[in-house]
């Protein structure tokens, strides 16, 4: 024998176990990579928490309408308009921020209990992150438009949002005025006519007690009927 004993290995016989290990490891690795890729694709395709941010889009398009090259004759957007647009954007941000703050605790406790799904939580977290970036962006923009405005813009925005909320409530209430008025008019007429009728009837037949007794009399037979029906 040319080879030492320890090298004299039955390679053919070992091929099977090695193949087994390779196939197993390969299968697990493909599974994990496919699974991860899918997950990543899924989370990338998750619908955003909030719809399109109209106010931000308006502000950004206003900002980009600033004449860049002197050649074109676009009117310069006045700063007040830009500021108003930014304030509108901040109001919308406040609305979203409140929504997110309210939902956070509920969402996490529901996720723990298994009442809502994982992807909802992922969407939520992404929305939270986007919100943070958005707030920072608004503060920067505000500071660029007016010095130190960034510190107070959200305060005013919050007040504006509160005001708008109260106003919609008042509008809702006022919207019912017409129907309420109509109903009360009708009601008043009804009460009046009832009252007149009552006066008339009391003048004609003063035996009110008798009619009450009558009612009691009618009551008893029907009661016994019902009991009979139950049995």
């Amino acid at each position: 024998m040319a080879l030492p004993a320890f090298l004299d290995i039955d390679w053919k016989g070992l091929a099977l176990p090695f193949a087994y290990v390779i196939v197993l490891a390969g299968a697990l690795m493909t599974f994990s990579s496919v699974y991860r890729k899918r997950k990543a694709a899924e989370s990338a395709n998750l619908a955003p928490w909030f719809g399109p941010h109209l106010q931000r889009n308006i502000y950004l398009s206003l900002l980009h309408m600033q004449p860049e090259e002197g050649g074109e004759k676009t009117p310069r957007i006045p700063d007040s308009v830009l500021r108003a647009a930014l304030l509108r954007r901040a109001v919308e941000d406040i609305r979203r921020l409140i929504q997110i703050k309210n939902a956070k605790q509920a969402c996490s406790s529901l996720l723990q209990r298994g009442s809502v799904g994982d992807d909802l939580w992922q969407r939520f977290q992404r929305a939270e992150k986007e919100m943070e970036a958005e707030l920072r962006d608004v503060v920067q923009e505000a500071n660029a438009l007016a010095p130190n405005w960034g510190q107070s813009i959200f305060q005013s925005a919050h007040e504006m949002a509160g005001n708008a909320h109260i106003r919609t409530q008042i509008d809702d209430l006022l919207a019912t005025t017409e129907s309420e008025k109509k109903w009360w008019e009708k009601r008043r007429g009804q009460i009046q006519s009832d009252f007149m009728k009552e006066i008339d009837s009391s003048e004609q037949s003063p035996s009110k007690a008798a009619s009450e007794e009558d009612a009691v009399l009618v009551d008893t037979p029907s009661k016994s009927k019902k009991k009979g029906a139950k049995k």
Binding site: G117, D118, L120
Partner: peptide, 18 residues
């Protein structure tokens, strides 16, 4: 994972939350 604790589809639960 498909159904929530209340026995409805997870997607429905997510929609309801929204």
């Amino acid at each position: 994972k498909r159904r929530s604790k209340e026995g409805i589809l997870m997607e429905s639960a997510n929609n309801l939350f929204r």
